[in-house]
Structure formats: C-alpha cells, structure tokens
Amino acid sequence: MIVNEQIKASEVQLTGIEGEDLGIVSRSEALALAKRHDVDLVCLSLMSSPPPCRLVSRSAAKQDMNARKRDEKRKEQPLKTKEIRLTPHIEEHDYETKLRQVEKLLETGHAVELTVRVQGKEGQQAKALLERLLADLKGRGAKETGIQVSGKGAAVKVVPTPSP
C-alpha cells in the first residue's frame, strides 16, 4: 500500500473522505488536504495516469489492507476434504440426510470424499449408489476422480462447482 509521501506522482485523481470526487489535484495539495483532515492519502492503483488516490482514516486503511491479506491467504489454502461414509443398503430418509450433508459441505467450499463400505459382492450396488449421489449433486459439485471400486469399498471425490 502506497501512502502519503511514498506517492511520487506530480498529480493525482483525488477522492474525498465521503467518497466525493475532488478531481485532479497536485500531490502537494492532496497531502496538505490529508494533513488538514488528519487522514492518510492512499494510492489505489499505479496503473493509470494520474493515479487514483483517496483520503482515508489511518485505521480504516490498515483494516482494509489486513482484510485483503486475509482473503488472499484464504484463497491460497487448498480445499479441505471431508469424508461421508455410506452403506450400499441405505434407507431413503438416510440417503436424503447424507445428500443434504454433502450439499451443505459443498456450499461452504469443502471437497467431499464419498465412501461406501462393502462386504462380499456389493461392489456394483456401491457404484450405483455413488452414481445416484453424483446425479443428485449435479450443479453443486463435480467429481474430481472417477468412481474407484476396490475390495472393501467404493469411493469418489466431489469438489464444489464454481458459482457463476
């Protein structure tokens, strides 16, 4: 964040404390105005000429900068994966409850690992159950991996679909 004397441009496009447009003024005039109102002159972008600057109270500028850092840090973190376990012989109301759980997790931005435990020759039932779940989740989530059927279970990882 470029503040006060760090701004090197000779003229700036100034916005007042209340958001009003003060037009293009010289850097020295903008700094004098900032001192008179006991606020900071903050440069919003260096990509244009003259650069847009704003009069902002010191605490508000710090809070804004900290909020941006927090958001960037949150976006950098990988998706957390939550596991939902099912059985091939699930009752309809239990299925609906699990479906709501998965939808809620996807809405909050978590990836979901759907796991079906099988015994014996229930592999095809487990795969059919996962395919039904994926069909019901269409629009909310997309499978990241294919349905993997092994000896003791079937699993698929679902990630949230980005909102338009």
Rank of each mutant, 00 (worst) to 15 (best):
V112F: 05
A30D: 03
I147H: 05
K8W: 08
H89G: 07
Q101S: 05
Q6C: 07
R27F: 05
L55Y: 05
K75A: 15
T161C: 04
K75N: 14
A126G: 12
L44K: 06
V158D: 02
V116C: 06
K82M: 14
G141N: 02
M47N: 14
V25I: 15
K121V: 12
V56K: 02
G123H: 06
G109D: 11
R132Y: 08
K80Y: 09
K157F: 03
D38S: 15
D136Q: 08
Q148R: 14
E83F: 12
A60S: 13
L105G: 01
T15W: 12
E76K: 09
A135E: 09
A32R: 10
V158T: 05
L137T: 00
E113P: 15
T108G: 05
H89W: 14
R54L: 12
S10R: 15
L55A: 06
P88H: 11
G153R: 08
L134P: 01
E72I: 06
V12I: 09
G141T: 01
E20S: 14
K104L: 10
G123C: 10
G16V: 09
K157P: 00
R70I: 08
A155W: 00
E29Q: 10
D38I: 06
L105K: 01
P88C: 11
Q119R: 13
I90C: 10
A155I: 14
R58V: 14
E5V: 09
R132W: 12
L14E: 03
P88R: 10
V39H: 05
S163N: 03
Q77N: 12
N4D: 14
N4V: 06
Q125G: 08
A128H: 06
V102P: 03
I147S: 03
L22A: 04
E103Y: 02
S10L: 04
L14Q: 00
V102G: 01
R70E: 13
S59Y: 15
S28H: 07
L106S: 02
E144S: 08
E103D: 15
T15R: 07
T97I: 13
S150G: 07
E83L: 10
G151I: 11
P78I: 02
P164F: 12
L106W: 02
M47W: 10
R58S: 13
E107A: 05
R74W: 01
S150Q: 15
L133M: 15
G19K: 08
L99F: 09
S59C: 07
P164E: 12
P50S: 02
S150T: 14
I24D: 04
G19W: 12
A30S: 07
V112Q: 04
A142T: 07
V42T: 01
G146Y: 07
L41P: 00
V102E: 03
L44V: 06
G139Q: 05
